[in-house]
Structure formats: structure tokens, C-alpha cells
Design a protein around this nucleic acid. Sequence first.
DNA 1: TACGGTGATTTTATAGATATTTTTGCAATT
DNA 2: AATTGCAAAAATATCTATAAAATCACCGTA
Lengths: 240, 240
Amino acid sequence: MGDPLKISDAPALDDANAPDGVGSESMTSRAYMRLREDIISGELEPGRKLKIEELRRKYDVGTSPIREALSLLTSDHFVERIDQRGFRVSDVSAQEFEELLKTRCWLEERALRESIANGSPEWEERVVLANYRLSRMPRSEASDHFVANKEWEAQHKHFHMTLISECGSSMLLKFCDQLYDQAIRYRQLSGTKAYPARDIAEEHSAICDSVLARDADLAADLLVKHYRRTSKFLSDELND
Amino acid sequence: MGDPLKISDAPALDDANAPDGVGSESMTSRAYMRLREDIISGELEPGRKLKIEELRRKYDVGTSPIREALSLLTSDHFVERIDQRGFRVSDVSAQEFEELLKTRCWLEERALRESIANGSPEWEERVVLANYRLSRMPRSEASDHFVANKEWEAQHKHFHMTLISECGSSMLLKFCDQLYDQAIRYRQLSGTKAYPARDIAEEHSAICDSVLARDADLAADLLVKHYRRTSKFLSDELND
DNA sequence: TACGGTGATTTTATAGATATTTTTGCAATT
DNA sequence: AATTGCAAAAATATCTATAAAATCACCGTA
């Protein structure tokens, strides 16, 4: 009964780099991931009508897999379904972004405090390692202007998820994961052009240090400020 | 553009009592709700394999709607999907129940505190009203032995959701809603036979009073204790 | 007992049929 | 002339039925 079955509960973004070997996943899973990527990246812009026929062609699959993938995406709040009237990409708004940020801070603060209270020494090592790997990664692919570095994004998410990974609740982790991906979408949408020059790596290290010192109040404070700072720019742009 | 379209984001359970007039919902929505009910009630027991053909007959719809409904249910964590191997009802465990309870307390405490901080006078009135309606409702349909009263269940949920309704985050509300329904499933599964004789109505009123007094610390404490008490019995049973 | 093949069951995907919504065009009225 | 109302047509979503792919259970053989 304890089979190591792959449950496609919420396939992570990093699954994109499949080793082209054993492609034994279902069409639905593939469609789900591709659609998800295209919505997060902004290629499928907010509010856009998602016509089945159009998608069927674009991704070269039948209607059922598309339909199922879209159904799955509604729960991630990336797609909205209107009975008898099809699907559309979820809208974005400055107000929703504020909500998102606020909720993220609430949930991650709690999760971080619990992790600090319960985390094992092995967890501490994972935090250190995640921070190190992130610090070695260039934020931008080009040095003169900003070009989002996919690998940095992946490591960044990994670092933040590692921080809260020992909170003791897989449900809370799932919620944080969902909210994180929602936030990425907003970041992608708002032109990532002029990014702040502040030292983000330094902020991460500070969080890391406070976690190792098991100083929950400090860690929570640093984490929340980190998020608020990162989000400040997006808020300003969205409010134009 | 500002049409009052009905978004079937997460159809509530109470939608079951449709006025048989304009049945303009899709087969998928109907299948979703019926499946959901049957899983929560325990008719479709945990771990059970959900064969498409079987369900197709039982609910008298085609494969597509069933498949889509099941996809939707995976995100509510009521159904698990295994690529190429179909669907099954999510398993339950004492450990998961503990997690559920813990997470619910964390999230609802935060939401309650925010509601108390931001709630309008109109919100206070809604809380009072919800508590009154709940208090007028018999807990059990029979007086000599316990028979779950659907109407009481609905009012109970409504009371708790009203408490946190002004937390300022629709996302947090959605999470609480999801966790609440998960908990109902556990309550239904664990034989609801011997229910505690404690005065639950009194506990609700106490929470109500502390909310009206805007005493966040007291309200949060009462709420959490309320949940832990209600859950104590289930935990004991599950741990057998 | 372990291994491998074969048939039945079940999942998954496609294609075609039906029902609904949206658009378009026309006519009647203001 | 412009606008509203209606009806037919096109587009689209939804559902059913059928075919293809994968998994599972069983049995025989080494």
C-alpha cells in the first residue's frame, strides 16, 4: 500500500525540465502545466477568454484534457469558470494584490514561527544550503539590464519554502505555495524592468541568521519586511 | 462588462435546495455537488476507488462531467488523482486530523483578530443575528438520540464564517471555508453517536459577547478552545 | 517461489452530436 | 436617421459515445 506513486496534486513549476526520457504523464498533466506556465508568464493575459478550440490547437490535445486542466486551474485561482459560458484567465487588480500580500505575510509568519519552534538540526542545514545556493545565483541573466533568471526564481522559491517547511502542517504549506505562485504572476505581469538595486541577498542572509539563532520575532519581522519591500514596487505600478 | 454573472467558483453546499425553476447549471456543477456531498457524508468512504463508469451510472451523466467534477474535487482535497490510474476518495488519518485542527486554529485566529480590528457595526449585527439563529436551532433532529440536523450544520458554519468575514482577505476566507468542510467530513465519518452533553450554545454566545466587546485576545482564546473541545472526541475515536 | 506473458478491466483521449450563448441582420417604431 | 426589438445564424460550450492506451490480475512455466 505504501507505493511511491506520483500524485499530481500540485505539480511544481520546476517539473518543466523533464528529462525527455519517460514521458509517462497524462495529457491532462501536460496541458495543466503548460497552461499554468503561460498564465503565470503573462502570455495568456488576465481576463482573456480561453476558447477550448483555440487551446486545443495551440497545445495539440483533445478537448477533454484541456477542459480538465482548466478545471484544475480554477482552484489555483488562475482561471475562472462560468457555467455554460466557458473559461477565462482570472483578472488581476491592485486591490487583490494587496490582499495577496497581506495574506501571504499572515500565513508565512505563522508557518515560520512554527518551523523555528519545531525545526530539526537537519532543517537548519537545509536552510543554510538553500540560502547558499540562492546567493550563488545571478538575479538577472544579463548584467546590463534585467532579464528574469528562471533558475534564480526556482531557488528563491525553494529558499522561502524551506524556511517554513517544518511548520507541521502540509495544508498550510500548500496554501503558502499557492499564494507564492499567485504572487509570481503579479511580478511577471508588472514589467520587471526597473528592479530595485537593494541588496536582496543580504536580506536573505539576515533571515537565515535569525532563523539559526531561533529568534522567531526577529525572523518574522525580517521576512514580512522583505515581502513588503519586494511588493512595494508592484503596488505602485498597479495603482497607475 | 460589469455583468452580475454567476461565477461557480466554489459552489456552496446549500445550493442543493434549488428552486427547481431555472435549472441552468451545468452537468459538471451538479455532479460536483453531488459527489462532494456523498464524500462528506461518508457514503463514498475514504480510500475508495472512484471508477468513472460506476459514477457515470450512479449520477446519470457522461464521462466528461464526472471527470471534470473529480478534477475540481482534487483541489478541495476530497479526491486524489493518480495519473493513468484514476481517482480515489482521499484517505483520512488521525495525524491528518490533528494537522487540520491545528491549521484551522491558526488561520481562524488570525482571521478573527483581523475581523475584530476592522469589523463594521453592520458586521456586529450579522454576528448577533447568526448566533441567535443558531441558538434557536435544535442540534439533533430527534430528542432521545442524536440525528444530525442539516439545518443546524448550515447555521453553525454560517456563524463561524460570519465571525471571520471581515478579516479583509477573501483568500484567507476561502482557505477557512475549505478547512471547515474537511472537518465536517471527519465529523461525519467518526460515528456522531455519543455527542458531548456540554452546552455548545453557551460557548457560541460567549464568543459572540467577546467579539462585541472587541476583546480580541479573549475571543481568540474562546474560539480555539471551542474547536479543540469539539475535536477532542473525534481524535480519541480515530486513535483506536 | 519468482518471473513473464496474456486477457480483461479501467483510464484516457478523440471525434461527433446537442444545447446554449452570442452575434448579426433586418424591420418596425420613435 | 437613429434606436430598439426580434429572429435567424454563427460560434461556442457541453455532453455522449466510441476507440486507443495503459494498468492490473491471473495463470502457466521455469
